[in-house]
């Protein structure tokens, strides 16, 4: 795809699906299409006038039932760069606090004919529920502990940008695996794209039957990090201590925290990633987070391009279906 085609607003290619509910449903070809498209989108972000008319006249609703700064902002910027009309609905300002169900909220929005709904929700499967009742395209911006597909896509984009490939790389994911939607999306994406994926956590924070995802599971962080091309840290939440998942943040940091010392085991050109928000001094030391291997801010920057690609391709998909 060329930027000329983008400028003209002409749809050159599309995801042949209504929604983006998760990475699990995507083929490796679709993932590659999104990542390739995101490269063109990234170029738009570097211009003095960061706007193309691709989604002119389209209405996109950002429906967020959980507090989110980076994901919501990233989507909103992506939508604006594509000239979509955007609307943000956050839980505190919605009628949900008055006892309205998710289905009724969705149907109410749907009656105003948005083209897309970007949904962040605390319940796994909330996007699937919406997708069954809405004609609008549903984009999953994180559902419970299920998936966060655009995060995995931007992670893949960031890795590919540096390493020029995903296949054959050793990627170690360390942190709260049990409660992480980022983990699940990344597992699907990395295994589909042929990366060698290791996951590492105390056994209390490892979901059941993790091996069936095609990954190596360990509680020895050194094994996970050794010769890794990419080390991705996941947030450890303080409230997990109450569920007796681990004893203290200090102990977690001692056993699993990513330090410069541990990082020496990885490949010399290792990339350090974190989906944010970080707990400095817990899962990641500040030296590592701010160090030369960190691409954490690149991830944020690339999030906009990847989300532009997803929005653009899904919009094209809808038109494609109608034309067919």
């Amino acid at each position: 795809m060329t930027t000329q085609e983008l400028e003209s607003g002409r749809q050159v290619t599309a995801l042949r699906r209504k929604d983006l509910l998760g990475i699990e449903d995507l083929s490796s070809e679709e993932i590659t299409l999104i990542l390739d498209t995101a490269e063109a989108m990234k170029e738009i972000g570097s211009r003095p006038i960061k706007k193309v008319p691709a989604l002119r006249g389209k209405t996109v609703v950002n429906l967020f039932f959980e507090p989110s700064t980076r994901t919501r902002t990233s989507f909103e910027i992506a939508e604006k760069r594509l000239s979509a009309d955007t609307l943000n609905i956050a839980i505190a300002s919605s009628s949900v606090v008055k006892g309205e169900t998710l289905v009724d909220t969705a149907l109410t929005l749907e009656a105003m004919s948005p083209d897309m709904i970007v949904l962040r929700h605390q319940s796994s499967g909330a996007c699937h529920l919406l997708s069954r009742i809405c004609k609008s395209a549903i984009i999953n911006a994180g559902d419970g502990t299920h998936e966060h597909p655009t995060q995995a896509l931007l992670d893949a984009f960031t890795i590919r940008e540096r390493k020029k490939r995903l296949a054959g790389l050793k990627v170690a994911i360390v942190g709260d695996l049990l409660h992480s939607r980022v983990l699940r999306s990344n597992l699907h994406l990395l295994t589909k794209m042929g990366a060698e994926t290791w996951v590492c956590a105390p056994p209390t924070l490892v979901p059941q039957e993790m091996r069936r995802f095609g990954v190596v599971v360990t509680s020895v962080v050194e094994d996970a990090v050794r010769d890794a091309d990419v080390v991705m840290l996941l947030r450890i939440q303080l409230e997990r201590m109450e569920g007796a998942y681990f004893s203290s943040l200090r102990e977690y940091a001692t056993v699993f925290g990513m330090t410069e010392e541990r990082l020496k085991l990885a490949k010399p050109d290792v990339m350090i990633m974190h989906p944010g928000p970080m707990n400095r001094g817990v899962e990641i030391s500040s030296e590592v987070a701010d160090g030369p291997y960190s691409v954490i801010l690149d991830q944020v920057a690339n999030g906009v391009a990847v989300r532009m690609a997803v929005l653009y391709l899904l919009a094209g998909g809808a038109e494609h279906e109608e034309a067919a």
């Binding site: 939607r181 979901p207 995802f213």
Partner: peptide
């Protein structure tokens, strides 16, 4: 049920 499918779907087991 706590098993592969709950893990995959992000459902508490």
């Amino acid at each position: 049920h706590e098993g592969f499918h709950a893990s995959r779907l992000g459902l508490r087991g």
